[in-house]
Structure formats: structure tokens, C-alpha cells
Amino acid sequence: MDLINLANCNRYDIGIIKEINELNMYDKSCLSGGEVEARLLEMGFIEGARVEVLHLGAFGEEPIAIRINNSNSIIALRKNEASAVLLEKIKND
């Protein structure tokens, strides 16, 4: 199964995180290596978690608002950070 990038997801897409890797980012981060990855992990992103794209920013652009697993709070992030996250899309139910 092909992996898709969280930054390319549409609204209501649901997927399972397969990989969080800075090397996939659109623009290389200006932070020291591993830092963006650590921040994403800290905010709750983790391989195996289910994510759902809830909202897109103005005119369908960044930032995107997503839910991780079924936490009661929502995480907003810009596309460049989102591009570090690869998903396996699961059927939208």
C-alpha cells in the first residue's frame, strides 16, 4: 500500500501513521536534526496512531487541524511540519 504525506491529505481523510521522518519534509527544517521529529512526537504524533484531518486553514491551505487517536484536543500544524508524517490512508467511514 502506498503511503501518503499528511500535508497532502484532504479534509476528513483518516489514516494510520506509518513513519515520522524529517527527511520527508518539503523544506529542510532550520532546527537541529531530530528536533522537529521530537516536537511532533511530544505533541502526540507516533507511529501506529490514527489521525483524522478535521479542518484546513483559510481557502483550503495551511495550517491543518488534526485529531490524533481520539484525544479530546486538536492539533494544528503547518504543512511543512505535517510533511514529515507519512500515513497509510484507511477508508473513510
Binding site: 532550520c30 516536537r39 511532533l40 505533541m43 479530546n72 484536543s73 486538536i74 500544524l77 511543512n80
Partner: peptide, 13 residues
């Protein structure tokens, strides 16, 4: 001068 910083935040219920 500096590149764009990551911006990740939480939206509470």
C-alpha cells in the same frame, strides 16, 4: 533573517 519556524499548537475543546 531566519527560516520559518515550525508552528504546532493545540486547539482545546
Amino acid at each position: 533573517k531566519g527560516e520559518r519556524q515550525p508552528s504546532i499548537m493545540e486547539l482545546p475543546s
